[in-house]
Design a protein around this nucleic acid. Structure first.
Lengths: 156, 156
DNA sequence: TTACGTGCAAATAATTTGCAGTCCC
DNA sequence: GGGACTGCAAATTATTTGCACGTAA
């Protein structure tokens, strides 16, 4: 939001600039018909650097650019994009689900006052060794969220 | 649940055995009147090793031991206990909130198939250095959840 | 043409709230 | 006795579903 901490990383998925035709192709590859709604949402999601969005944020954004889409379609699309590997769903607190346009494994700061998410730059987080999974289980993914709050009196 | 991975750690909060009078005292210290409902829920929560419960689990348990408590009271009590430092709320996926009777910082395995939480034994997780918080912010807490799933064909 | 998509409205799920009545100090 | 607490039911919030209609291939 206000913090310069996360200069949008260059996209690792070959969708830079994301001209509409590339997006349509990408949708087709995922066996998703490039409908007006999906293209509009894809454009909003992937058109400008990585983002963390909620269904509601995307709904409002679509409306504000005159491509209104129903909530049902927002949810359908977010889940289809997630299944296709374009997005990653992030479980934070509360009922609200976040979707991250960077599907690669990485960690987040959660600003407690606003509920905003911030990528933690890979170089800011020393690698750590995940523990062995319990007997009979295997690790699917590691979710690290560091909850931060405004420091009192500007220190820290 | 079935896994021997987490032998309930000895309680660090002086509530071993948790005789009712100690619980009542503890509630009073937190400026919570030791009502029938709060004592019953405290007994269920703290009476036997550490646990990860949802509001619904606690509701059902209270009913099953013939101390039925309304959902509103379950939620009130869980939040009051959390504010008092007896519990820690854990944000996992989905709308459902978990409350951990171990309020000290520690991490969890999430069994994806069942949604069950498992403490990660401190010695199984090498310490790692948290990154510096963004400018103007300070770290409140670190939440690490390692999502695991059944390994295919018994291997790991 | 026709299977896939979309939008609406109603349904769910988890949680919160308002308030009349109850109980602890 | 009086304020803190509880229970009920209705309200909220986030999300899902069912189904008639629309639209891309």
């Amino acid at each position: 939001m206000l913090l310069p901490l996360t200069k949008p990383a260059p996209r690792a998925d070959g969708m830079e600039g994301c001209p509409v035709h590339a997006l349509r192709k990408r949708l087709r590859t995922a066996r998703l018909r490039p409908t007006r709604q999906r293209v509009a949402l894809g454009w909003l999601l992937f058109g400008k650097g990585h983002r963390h969005v909620t269904a509601e944020m995307l709904f409002d954004e679509a409306k504000s650019v005159r491509s209104p889409v129903s909530m049902a379609t927002i949810y359908n699309t977010l889940h289809q994009f997630t299944r296709a590997g374009f997005l990653r769903e992030i479980a934070v607190e509360g009922a609200k689900a976040y979707f991250d346009t960077n599907p690669l494994p990485h960690s987040h700061f959660l600003i407690e006052e606003t509920g905003a998410l911030l990528d933690i730059p890979a170089n800011a987080l020393p690698a750590f060794h995940a523990p062995k999974a319990p007997e009979g289980y295997e690790i699917d993914r590691v979710e690290l969220v560091i909850r931060v709050r405004r420091a009192r009196r500007g220190r820290q």
